[in-house]
Design a protein around this nucleic acid. Structure first.
Lengths: 202, 202
DNA sequence: GTCTATAGCCAGATAGAC
DNA sequence: GTCTATCTGGCTATAGAC
């Protein structure tokens, strides 16, 4: 019985378009450099109209960050349903996906300690909930993979978790893409290799 | 014959203090968030005086970036003189040092594709020269370590080089430090382990 | 809810006295 | 070369008509 009027659907579609623009601009320029004027121009509406949907630039960015987390959560749930692969394979699949998203120019960078965005996100319950949910689900795979000896047992699980988050925004991807020597697929396989296998020789 | 007047020495000392402040603020907040007013306040001089030494915010930041490169070059030269260690050990020593600098709050983050800073740096000959010099010297060690089988021969050398640069600014360090569970030394050893050895189990 | 227009603020950079 | 005071422009956010 979800009485959703046509009007509401249009509204949601517009908000979705806004969040998509924010997401792309966030990935491209970062929160501090991105301006609300750019977002408005990109969506094709007036800036004042944006503020009818979102009350601040921070909330705009938070919506984009939440959607990214929702996307990765959806992927995780899908992978959970496909129980064929081992824990470490599931983790690699997630890492591969985040790298694809980054190469597609749709992965906002991690909110650094400094960023003005960080403070706003830390008080955003929805964002924190999603972040915790992703962390929990990945944490289960991480400990399972360690138990199975697929991941180094000597590493504290949070080190592995943080590393996976960081690799999703790894600047090495951008540097290699700028170099133009490798295809996107090759870049991703190289980074997965260095992330899980390290730089060292066998 | 280095006729350096006392006045010049005072000048150099002041500029060095400025660059130190910029370096710290750059590491703490990033180029976009850092303001010239903050720098002036931190140094203890008027903003207008800053502009007598450096003509723009970008040049201010470039001076700090160049000094970091000079510091790492000095380290490399010292390590070259100490020929006891293998190539991969030299690389690890450099990586360890950059991580120490980062934990000390003195490592500016890599200028991202987006950053307003990147454009300015790409036209700064001194910066580019230093960057190339560091890259060349590290490149020699990288290929030597690959030849010796200490680093994975299948990895293109530039992938290893970029990875070392990226690990110098790895946000994982900050996340682990914020967690408060590990000492600085432990954090560095964990990251060196995941960087060279990977996340995988043996 | 959409727009145009503008308020209010703060940043980078400069003028000009000393 | 140092300072105080100011210019200029761009940004977030809002007012108010439709």
């Amino acid at each position: 019985m979800p009485k959703v009027s046509f009007r509401d659907q249009v509204l949601r579609a517009r908000e979705d378009a806004i969040v998509s623009s924010v997401n792309r601009l966030l990935a491209e320029k970062g929160f501090d450099v991105m301006t609300v004027d750019e977002v408005a121009a990109d969506v094709g509406i007036a800036k004042a109209s944006l503020y009818k949907h979102f009350t601040s630039k921070e909330e705009l960015a938070a919506a984009a960050m939440i959607r990214v987390l929702d996307r990765v959560l959806a992927l995780i749930v899908t992978l959970e349903a496909t129980t064929k692969a081992s824990a470490v394979e599931q983790l690699k699949a997630v890492a591969r996906w985040t790298m694809q998203v980054q190469l597609a120019g749709e992965m906002p960078s991690l909110p650094a300690q400094n960023s003005a965005l960080r403070g706003a996100l830390m008080t955003n319950k929805i964002y924190l909930d999603r972040l915790m949910e992703v962390s929990d689900k990945l944490g289960i795979w991480i400990t399972a993979a360690q138990k199975a000896g697929q991941l180094n047992r000597k590493l504290p699980p949070e080190v592995i978790l943080y590393t996976l988050f960081a690799r999703a925004c790894d600047p090495v991807l951008g540097l290699l893409k700028a170099g133009g020597q490798h295809s996107d697929e090759a870049i991703i396989e190289l980074l997965l290799s260095t992330c899980f296998g390290g730089l060292g020789g066998r």
